[in-house]
C-alpha cells in the first residue's frame, strides 16, 4: 500500500498505545439480592501489546477468545479488572469521568454490525453531528452541516444522505456512515471491531480500501479485530493471535503468515481457504480437535494444550510465556516453537 511509502519512519520512543497486563474477568454470580461470586469468566487474561502512531495491529482469534472484550476495555466501554493502557502517555484506565470525556475524542470505534450500530431514530446528519454537540469546540455550530456533508462525501456517500434514516441504506453504506462518525473527532486511534465481517465480500473490499485511504490521509492507527486471517493480512502491519483470553503469538506480517511458530496460529493458517486448486492438496491441514475450553475454568499450564497436536507433559505444568524462545524473531507462547513450512504459503 502507498501507506508504506508515505508513513513516517518508525522512530523509537513512546508508542501511541501501550497496553500492559490487561485483565478483564466477568464475575459469575449467584443469588438474587445478595450476589455471591462463584467464579469468573476470564475473557481477557494478561494481554500486553504496543501500537505505534499510524500503525495497524490485527487482532485475530476465534469467537470467544477475548478480542472484542480487549477492544471494548480500551474504550472503557467495559471496565478492566486490572492492567494499564497508556494512550499518548496517559493511563486511560485511571482517568476520571471528565478526563475520560476528553480522552475519548482520540479513540473511536467502528462496529461489526452496521444494522445495529446506527440509531434507527436519528437521521444520518444527527448521527454525524452528535459528536460535535457533545464536544462543541471541535466544529463551530454554523459549519457543522457543511462539515458533515464533507465527511459523508469523503467516505463515499452522497451529501444529501444527511437527511435520511439508516434503514434507507445498505449494509456497506451504513458501515461508511459508521466510519464517518468515527472520524468526526479527528481520532488518533480507531478500533475496528470486525468492521467487514457482516458485509458482502465485494463490499468488504471497498470498505477495507476506504479504511486504508483514511489511514493514509489522517495518520490514524487501527486496532483491527477480525476472525479472518486473510482480511487482517491485507490491512495490518502487525498481527496478534489470541486464544482464550491470551495473545499466543504476535509479529509482523512475515512473522505470522510465513514463519508462524505457535501451533494455534499454524492451525488457523492451514484453515484459510486456498482459491487455487493447484498445490492445494499438498498443503498440511491441521484439524483442531474439541471445542474452546470453558473460559471460566481454563486448562492448567498452556491454555491451548487441550487441543494442541504437540502437547506434552510440560505443557500441562508450565504456562508458556509470550517470548521469543528459539530466535525466530517474534514472541510466541509455546514451549516448542517451530516453523512449519507446509502451512500457510
Amino acid at each position: 500500500m502507498p501507506s508504506d511509502l508515505n508513513r513516517e519512519p518508525r522512530t523509537p520512543g513512546e508508542p501511541l498505545l501501550r497496553v500492559e497486563h490487561l485483565v478483564k474477568h466477568f464475575p459469575l454470580t449467584q443469588g438474587i439480592i445478595f450476589k455471591r461470586t462463584i467464579g469468573a469468566v476470564q475473557a481477557v487474561d494478561d494481554v500486553s501489546f504496543e501500537l505505534r502512531r499510524g500503525e495497524t495491529l490485527g487482532l485475530v482469534g476465534e469467537s470467544g477468545c477475548g478480542k472484542t472484550t480487549t477492544a471494548k476495555t480500551l474504550l472503557r466501554l467495559e471496565e478492566p479488572t486490572s492492567g494499564a493502557a497508556y494512550f499518548n502517555g496517559q493511563d486511560i484506565f485511571r482517568l476520571s469521568r471528565g478526563e475520560l470525556r476528553t480522552a475519548r475524542r482520540k479513540i473511536q470505534i467502528i462496529f461489526q454490525d452496521p444494522y445495529a450500530s446506527l440509531n434507527p431514530r436519528m437521521t444520518i446528519g444527527d448521527i454525524i453531528t452528535e459528536a460535535w454537540e457533545i464536544h462543541p469546540d471541535v466544529v463551530p455550530r454554523a459549519e457543522r452541516s457543511d462539515r458533515a456533508r464533507d465527511l459523508l462525501e469523503r467516505v463515499g456517500l452522497p451529501g444529501e444522505s444527511l437527511n435520511r434514516y439508516p434503514h434507507q441504506f445498505s449494509g456497506g453504506q451504513r458501515q461508511r456512515v459508521g466510519i464517518a462518525r468515527a472520524l468526526t473527532l479527528n481520532p488518533d486511534l480507531i478500533i475496528c471491531d470486525e468492521p467487514v465481517s457482516a458485509l458482502d465480500v465485494s463490499v468488504q473490499a471497498q470498505v477495507i480500501n476506504l479504511l486504508e485511504e483514511i489511514q493514509d490521509e489522517f495518520g490514524i492507527a487501527y486496532i483491527f479485530v477480525a476472525h479472518d486471517l486473510s482480511v487482517v493480512r491485507h490491512i495490518s502491519d502487525r498481527v496478534a493471535v489470541m486464544y482464550l483470553g491470551r495473545i499466543v503469538e504476535i509479529g509482523d506480517e512475515d512473522d505470522i503468515y510465513e514463519k508462524a511458530t505457535h501451533p494455534y496460529t499454524q492451525a488457523l493458517l492451514s484453515a484459510v481457504p486456498v482459491p487455487n486448486p493447484e498445490g492445494r492438496e499438498h498443503r498440511t491441514r491441521i484439524m483442531l480437535e474439541g471445542d474452546l475450553p470453558n473460559p471460566a475454568d481454563p486448562p492448567s499450564g498452556c491454555r491451548f494444550r487441550t487441543r494442541c497436536f504437540k502437547a506434552q507433559e510440560k505443557c500441562a505444568e508450565e504456562d508458556p510465556a509470550l517470548i521469543d524462545r528459539s530466535g525466530h524473531g517474534h514472541p510466541s507462547a509455546c514451549h516448542f516453537p517451530e516453523v512449519l513450512l507446509s502451512v500457510g504459503s
Partner: peptide, 17 residues
C-alpha cells in the same frame, strides 16, 4: 447494549444524552 449506544458512549455522551 445496542452498538449505537456504545458508539454514543465512545463519543463521550453523558448518561442524560
Amino acid at each position: 447494549e445496542a452498538d449505537y449506544v456504545q458508539a454514543a458512549r465512545a463519543l463521550g455522551a453523558s448518561d442524560g444524552r
